[in-house]
Design a binder for these strands. Structure first.
Length: 99
DNA sequence: TGCGTGACTTGAC
DNA sequence: CGTCAAGCCACGC
């Protein structure tokens, strides 16, 4: 798993319950300051067992559409991650800091 | 080897 | 505060 693809998945797998990370954060952690899109591209694979729902965009929202988006918010809510009245997740509060 | 595509981000208008 | 455009990276064809 030395490919960028594998490193992205490995990083996402490390996100603890109750926390979230943005695509940009993960990309930056892997040394790609502008590789946020690559992270999203890798997440499209969605390997089973990966906490994909803990990955959101820089706006604090889900980048998914339709039903998948609702499922992501539901899973996050089950971990205690709630959205503010504007429908956004407070990154200052839930952002994974041990990255 | 080269081009299109995408679960992004940021800066202008 | 909403919309638009450009930049950037890896992968598949």
């Amino acid at each position: 798993m030395s490919s960028t693809f594998g490193r992205i998945h490995a990083t996402v797998a490390r996100i603890p319950p109750g926390c979230v990370a943005t695509y940009g954060d993960i990309a930056l952690h892997l040394g790609m300051p502008h590789g946020a899109r690559t992270v999203g591209w890798a997440m499209r694979q969605c390997p089973q067992g990966l906490p994909w729902h803990r990955v959101i965009n820089a706006e604090g929202k889900s980048s998914l559409r339709g039903k998948s988006r609702e499922r992501q918010y539901t899973l996050l809510a089950q971990e205690g991650v709630v959205t503010d009245r504007r429908g956004r997740i407070d990154l200052e509060q839930y952002r994974w800091q041990e990255i």
